[in-house]
């Protein structure tokens, strides 16, 4: 498989075209975080509702390239129902994976593992990270 085919996996395209948990809510109980990347036009907002130390709900709105939109969508699917600690651990592992750093392989990244192809494209690491970085901040 070429590097490019390995980047544009079917699951990623599917999320790009049908982003999950898309659309923001007007609810103060959600912690909201917006990150823009002015150099490429990415604009991503993540909203997280924490209840009983768990991610009860998560919403996203992302404009940008397929990788940034799909990674926001996959993020919301995976994180729903996770405890705050697990969510942080998974997010850290994911961010290390896409930046080609060492990470705890025993952590199950579920569908997010399809983004492993990003590490061959240093210029695209930001695209794959932006929603996850935004999400981590909502947990603080």
């Amino acid at each position: 498989m070429s590097n490019l085919d390995n980047l544009y996996r079917e699951i990623i395209m599917e999320h790009y075209k049908n982003p999950r948990n898309h659309g923001l809510v007007d609810n103060e109980n959600y912690k909201s975080n917006r990150i823009k990347n002015p150099s490429c036009g990415d604009d991503i907002t993540v909203q997280t509702l924490i209840e009983d130390n768990k991610v009860k709900d998560i919403k996203q709105e992302a404009t940008g390239c397929s990788i940034s939109v799909a990674s926001a969508s996959v993020l919301t699917e995976i994180m729903k129902g996770k405890t705050v600690e697990d969510a942080k651990r998974i997010a850290d592992a994911y961010l290390n994976m896409v930046t080609n750093k060492e990470y705890d392989q025993s952590i199950d990244l579920e569908e997010a593992s399809v983004f492993s192809g990003v590490k061959k494209f240093p210029a695209r690491i930001k695209c794959a990270s932006i929603a996850w970085v935004a999400f981590k901040d909502t947990l603080e």
Binding site: L4, F121, R124
Partner: peptide, 10 residues
């Protein structure tokens, strides 16, 4: 999106 296209050229 331009950032998808650029990877093809790169």
């Amino acid at each position: 999106p331009s950032h998808d296209a650029i990877s093809f050229f790169a």
